[in-house]
Design a binder for these strands. Sequence first.
DNA 1: TGAAATGTTGGGGCG
DNA 2: ACGCCCCAACATTTC
Length: 468
Amino acid sequence: MSTGIWWIRRDMRLDDNPALQEAINNNSCLLPLFILDPTILSHPAEKRKAFMFEGLRRLDAQLRLQGSRLFILIGDPQTVLSQVFYASNASAIYAEADYSPYARKRDHAVAAILPLWLVHGLTVFPPGLIHKQNGSPYTVYTHFKLAWKSLPLPAPCCTQQEFHLPPLPESTPICEDIPETSIRDLFMQPGESAAFKRLQKFLREPIYEYLEKRDLLALDATSTLSPYLRFGMISIRGVVQEARFAIDNAQDEKSRKNAQTWLDELVWREFYYSVLHFFPDGLKTSFRKDLHKIQWHNAPQELEAWKQGKTGYPVVDAGMRQLKQTGWMLKRARMITASFLVKNLLVNWQEGESWFMENLLDGDPALNSGGWQWTASPGKDVPPTFRIFNPTLQSQKFDPKGTYIRRWVAELANVPDAFIHQPWRMPEDIQKQSGCIIGDIYPTPIVDHKSIQERTLLAFQTTKEPGE
DNA sequence: TGAAATGTTGGGGCG
DNA sequence: ACGCCCCAACATTTC
């Protein structure tokens, strides 16, 4: 009789879970354990924590269906694991490898005093596996993607729908309750079955229109799987396998291309974890070293207006309000709002990065930082150009009727279509008619896009290297 | 996974 | 009927 501890961190699922499988294969008893780490609990991400706690409740329910249960303990992981390990007379601890700098440090400390087995499962291929011929990392996505796609997809570790969880050990720790949260309405229901349903729904039709519709802000045309992937409520290997299957089954070339684009997004996720692997400092400092030279404007009141969705640019404000209320934005909305902060307000990208981390359900350091640095980078990607998003053009393109804007910015609900993207241009009588006085009910734009361009170009010029 | 400036084309109104 | 102009729509170039 041996007991394995399944230390759950961000692999909150039973299906295709390599760490869980490893624990089961090597033990006759299993102790599923989640540690409430004060370091993580102190992070001000209330919505994401609520999603996580509710997810833990669902996982506990799943475990109980098979005669097991989830154990919750509070404290420093090294201390907690030592106690549980000896109290339950366990043989080893099994966990899915996590690659953030904090996780690495934490796991290193645990492994120094206890038998900790880290099993890969967070990405399809372990970060670091894919590199150039000479061993150096890919820093351009396109090249990484080609290398990624040339590799055979690893098979899921347990394909059977039903498997039997080993029983609990005889001596189990006294455990805490899953914390309650003050968050009432979660934008998405967490848990493995919700994730699975969402994927199935997406695969039926939307995946074949993904490229054409993903940027339309008023639609719900994307998979919205990222919060589930964030907590491992669904297996990335399984998702990729389904994506490949969908591509192979596409009815026509256009559908195939649409589905292919969705898979490419999953490869972006792999790419950012790879970048983090090779550049572990890239989370806190700019991956592009020359970004340090930029003279940011960093006006606190402008940053605050951005956070609260009161910049006076409807599409930016809609996005920021949606983020604060629900913890979710389409990638297009993330790009528009991020570009506005960095390129229009000239605020250091790290300010935006940490606000997103506070609010996003899917907030993941590697991906969030990667996305922000993509925004801040003045165009090292292909083709090499300098991009400043024009919030009005983006708005007209991706929310042509203003549906998204009106959904999130109530003050603009009755503004006519002709002015929905630029309400500051409304004549006074129309402002009165639509009940939206600019500068009173809805803010005047905090910066003028046109006049700000020169400042931004100048600030970013310092990043140009000789010969460029 | 831009935007703005510039260039090209093609249909319709009109003399 | 025909050529000319206008201009919107689309394409290409440049930053």
